[in-house]
């Protein structure tokens, strides 16, 4: 009686296996224990040994096919030209699971962000994903953080690969021009204490006005309007050319720069992409601050963005620098 070769079930959550390649050809003589074929599961690629002696016949699964576990993919028969028998076994193509349409050669993710990008965007924290998915994502230049940003629950497995690939075009077409993201680390938050001092000693109780003043002055081009956003609420301030913080006043004019203050939230970092105007986002980790500048190349060129972020981060670390 011929031995049936099936797609093996190798794990608890495995429904299908991808036949990577046959290591023996149809008609070839097989000895039990020979490596027969290679299968790829959601976790690993494994070599499967033959469980019987004989000749490989009735091969119904081709290389690259995704085959349900338990499905017969070949036989090991007593002769190389064993005839079909009457039992209507699975002779239909074993491709029961349709091959998903894979966009050919997805462009590497690095191309999706601007050449001017200093740091590729990434979602906060470590992404939980299977080693295999990590490897393939790396090979294809896909950023697993996109799945996290799109709201897909972690951990990610091979079954999420298609979703990840499909996310690419959407993320690859940022609005008018490519976005820049610059990150500055501020080991010490000098601003909080400065704001307390300004309120107590100088009567400048509106800390947002101070924040707007420091950001506006960091732009370095005279009078300007800066918005401060916190918990979705926004207030704009006019920052005078003289940079005096006591002269920063509330304004209804359109801002040219936005400061998004996420201190006190659980958010550790952001990668939102360019918005209608350049955005400086402040997040807090312990006593340290992280400041992200995101803008489009049309809004600001690289050197200007670097100068803005550096000046603002220096002021946040040591507000006295504002005086110089």
């Amino acid at each position: 009686m011929p031995h049936e070769v099936t797609m093996p079930q190798l794990g608890m959550t495995q429904d299908t296996g991808r036949l990577v390649q046959w290591l023996k050809q149809a008609g070839e003589k097989i000895t039990r224990g020979d490596l027969l074929f290679e299968v790829e599961t959601d976790k690993a690629t494994m070599e499967i040994e033959a469980q019987a002696d004989g000749f490989l016949t009735h091969v119904t699964a081709g290389e690259g096919d995704e085959v349900p576990v338990g499905k017969v993919i070949a036989r090991i028969s007593e002769t190389a030209d064993a005839p079909d028998d009457d039992t209507p076994r699975s002779h239909e193509p074993a491709r029961a699971v349709p091959e998903p349409a894979i966009p050919p050669a997805s462009p590497p993710a690095t191309e999706t962000t601007s050449k001017a990008s200093i740091e590729p965007p990434s979602a906060p924290g470590r992404i939980l994903a299977s080693p295999k998915l990590r490897r393939i994502a790396r090979e294809e230049g896909l950023d697993l953080a996109r799945l996290a940003r799109a709201g897909h629950p972690q951990p990610y497995h091979m079954r999420d690969l298609e979703t990840l690939r499909s996310l690419l075009p959407e993320a690859a077409s940022p609005a008018p021009s490519a976005s820049m993201r610059l990150r500055a680390a501020c080991p010490q938050d000098g601003f909080a204490e400065f704001a307390r001092w300004a309120a107590d000693a100088q009567g400048l109780a509106d800390a947002d006005a101070l924040l707007a003043g420091l950001a506006g002055a960091s732009l370095g081009h005279g009078e300007t309007v800066v918005a401060v956003e916190r918990f979705g609420a926004m207030r704009a301030y006019r920052v005078p050319r003289a940079r005096r913080l006591s002269a920063v006043t509330a304004s209804d004019d359109a801002p040219v720069l936005r400061v998004r203050d996420l201190r006190g939230t659980a958010i550790e970092t952001v990668a939102i992409g360019a918005e209608a105007l350049p955005v400086l986002t402040i997040t807090q980790r312990g006593s340290a601050l992280e400041i992200i500048l995101e803008c489009s190349a049309g809004q600001m060129d690289g050197p200007a963005a670097i100068a803005l972020l550096d000046a603002f981060a220096s002021r946040m670390r040591e507000p006295l620098r504002h005086l110089f």
């Binding site: 099936t6 093996p8 079930q9 794990g11 608890m12 576990v69």
Partner: peptide, 12 residues
């Protein structure tokens, strides 16, 4: 072992 590999047995 054969029952499991041939996907007739659930679990692990």
């Amino acid at each position: 072992n054969q029952l499991y590999l041939s996907a007739k047995m659930p679990g692990l």
